[in-house]
């Protein structure tokens, strides 16, 4: 299937000389939830800005559903909804006025019923006649999402959607994203909260210093790059690791009462049973054992710090 967004050799150098993107290639699949992770200043917002038409690319090309974003910008942009990172709102406008404006701006015929649906889904219907400046930060965020959805986009960009947002709104937002996906909308989100990507995304891209380091299915990424840890709570503390256990990278913790073994998740079948057999042979008994799989956050940190 043709990707809904196809980014090829995209480079951006700002007038200041800062190279924000370095020859980025990326295909976004139709209907997926794609999470773009990266530290501050990695180029996430620049990448989104170029696809949406706010930032001009230095070189490279972007196609949205086959439409070039420069030559055929009308068709490309009509498919995209953007929720920016900052709370940019027209303070004096009402909620209803601003979503109606957004729909019209994107060339769609007025449709009060559809806008009502969008506002209700975001719990904004009761606030429709309020001026935006009277709303709380979380409500303003909802307004920005409503504006982005007002023209029924096929692709939704959420730039740090849950930064500074309370738990309730975050849960609402996740539910909304899932509903959008059920309707076939492609969602691309950038986030600092890695748990968010872990919870929601089908695929994950990690960007650092303008380079896309990795793009992978979330499950594959976590399997391939994840680490597992086995912790054995020993019956009796141990002074030192016996030499015959040198084949396993072990560490002794908690005054010798815990033996820890970390290993690549995809090699799990290799080490653990043999280790346990060896411990049994040495007569080392344990009262309990624990395994822990590294989170996406651990993977992310190791990926980004590894490139520095």
């Amino acid at each position: 299937m043709q990707p809904v967004i196809s980014i090829s050799q995209l480079t951006k150098t700002y007038a200041s000389g800062l190279q924000a993107l370095k020859q980025v290639d990326l295909d976004i699949r139709r209907g997926e939830i794609f999470a773009l992770l990266g530290p501050n200043g990695a180029g996430k917002t620049t990448l989104i800005g170029i696809v949406c038409g706010i930032v001009r690319a230095t070189s490279g090309s972007v196609h949205v559903d086959g439409h070039d974003i420069v030559r055929d910008y009308r068709a490309a942009r009509a498919l995209i909804g953007l929720v920016p990172q900052e709370l940019h709102t027209d303070m004096f406008e009402t909620v209803w006025g601003t979503v109606r404006f957004s729909r019209g701006l994107f060339g769609r015929p007025p449709d009060a019923a559809r806008l009502e649906e969008v506002l209700r889904a975001l719990s904004l219907w009761d606030k429709r006649n309020d001026r935006i400046m009277a709303l709380s930060g979380g409500m303003k965020r909802r307004v920005l999402i409503a504006k982005a959805l007002a023209h029924d986009p096929q692709v939704l960009f959420l730039d740090e959607p849950t930064a500074g947002v309370d738990v309730e709104l975050r849960r609402d937002m996740w539910a909304l994203v899932r509903r959008l996906r059920e309707r076939g909308v492609t969602v691309i989100l950038t986030t600092h909260y890695i748990e968010e990507a872990e919870e929601m995304a089908d695929r994950i891209g990690v960007i650092n210093k303008g380079e896309l380091i990795v793009v992978e299915e979330k499950s594959v990424l976590m399997r391939k790059l994840g680490r597992k840890q086995l912790t054995l709570h020993l019956l009796e503390p141990m002074q030192a690791i016996p030499p015959s256990l040198a084949a396993w990278p072990l560490t002794l913790n908690a005054q010798g009462s815990e033996l820890e073994y970390s290993f690549d998740a995809h090699e799990e079948h290799a080490g653990v049973p043999a280790l346990l057999r060896e411990l049994d042979r040495l007569g080392i008994a344990f009262k309990d054992l624990q395994t822990r799989q590294s989170s996406l956050e651990d993977i992310f940190v190791s990926l980004v710090s590894g490139r520095r």
Binding site: I54, H88, D90, S102, F106, K147
Partner: peptide, 17 residues
Amino acid sequence: LPRFTGTIYEVLSAPVS
């Protein structure tokens, strides 16, 4: 005003010439 408040993003990202 939209430049100052940042709301210009929407016009720039819209299918308008």
